[in-house]
């Protein structure tokens, strides 16, 4: 299922192109943005279907409620902006208008996590998954490469109801072979087999985890690597089976350790497979300006840092 092609591609581009493809087939799809259409790449849809694209300006609350109205009118709505402004700024609109009425609105946010980089803390959404995960009827999906972004967006367009999809800002190395990997909306997926510990991840950190797992293998530690693009609803089986085997679970995410994938995994483990757990993500803190790779290093999200932390966690002498 893993790709031999290690090409680095833009997931935002993949999002924009997929929207256009879907828009050609389905005249019911409409797209909204809040003055960031070049960054989110919804500008591609705007160019192809100007009558079905609505730029709401710098007014995210208006965008989400307008999106709700279009969905009430029977449209399949994609609404995009940066993760910071797509969630916190309009949380009430998302909860009380979009989710409470189970409307067909897909919030596709780019620029999630610390990898926003130089713009700094005000633009680094480290809590977006946490906000979205706590709202009833909201599905939360964090894909890991371009081919998965394409599949997730197609799934979203064909599946009614509210969703939050987080697309990374950074260009990503291809992880999955698009011919062999089929996005499964109702399960986590094991992408590496081990016995000594379980590592769970998604989004931009998955490639780092895969590289860290390879390094661990070289010193004789074999990790089960689980990819959990669907953070909510949380599907327990794959995690449960792995954790019952390894008894040790590490979660790695480009998000605060509070409320994101790490929390979802802990909630599941506490019920089905109590295990020794270590969560790698940003701590209870704001981010800061810096180059993207430097920031990942600083907050412990690179393959090297993940490897070092896991060695400590495993108590390898």
């Amino acid at each position: 299922m893993l790709s031999k092609n290690q090409e680095i591609k833009s997931p935002r581009n993949a999002y924009g192109e997929t929207l256009v493809k879907l828009g050609e087939k389905n005249p019911n799809i409409v797209v909204l943005d809040a003055d960031l259409s070049c960054s989110t790449q919804t500008c591609k849809f705007a160019k192809a279907f100007p009558e079905r694209f609505f730029n709401c300006g710098i007014a995210e609350q208006d965008m989400m409620t307008t999106a709700a109205g279009l969905a009430y009118g029977g449209k399949t709505v994609f609404a995009s902006t940066f993760a910071m402004f797509a969630t916190a700024r309009c949380l009430d609109q998302i909860r009380n208008t979009i989710c409470y009425s189970k409307l067909d609105v897909k919030i596709v946010a780019t620029h999630g996590g610390i990898t926003v980089g130089e713009d700094g803390a005000s633009h680094q959404a480290l809590e977006d998954i946490s906000y979205m995960r706590s709202i009833p009827d909201m599905k939360v999906i964090v894909p890991s490469d371009c081919s998965e972004v394409e599949q997730v967006i197609e799934y979203a367009a064909n599946t009614p109801g509210p969703m939050y999809i987080r697309i990374p800002r950074t260009n990503l190395q291809c992880i999955f072979d698009p011919e062999a990997y089929k996005f499964n909306p109702t399960a986590g997926v094991k992408i590496r087999d081990g016995k000594d510990l379980t590592i769970v991840s998604n989004g931009e950190t998955l490639i780092e985890v895969l590289n860290a797992a390879q390094k661990l293998h070289e010193i004789g530690i074999e990790a089960d690597v689980l990819h959990y693009p669907i953070v909510k609803p949380f599907y327990h089986t794959v995690l449960k089976e792995s954790a019952r085997k390894t008894k040790k679970v590490v979660i790695v995410e480009n998000h605060s350790v509070i409320g994101g994938l790490g929390s979802a995994v802990c909630e599941s483990l506490s019920q089905f497979a109590p295990s020794k757990v270590y969560r790698i993500g940003t701590k209870d803190t704001f981010g800061q300006s810096g180059e993207q790779r430097q920031l990942m290093e600083f907050y412990g999200l690179t393959d090297k840092k993940i490897y070092e932390k896991i060695i400590k966690f495993m108590d390898v002498k």
Binding site: V30, E51, R52, F54, Q61, D62, T65, T66, A67, A68, G69, L70, A71, Y72, G73, G74, K75, D92, Q93, N96, T97, Y100, S101
Partner: peptide, 24 residues
Amino acid sequence: EVSTGSLGQGLSIGVGLALALRLD
């Protein structure tokens, strides 16, 4: 027609609905 309660949202919902009607 729609859920309301948290104030200030009905107008933009109306804008969205009006856009949908116009498209259709």
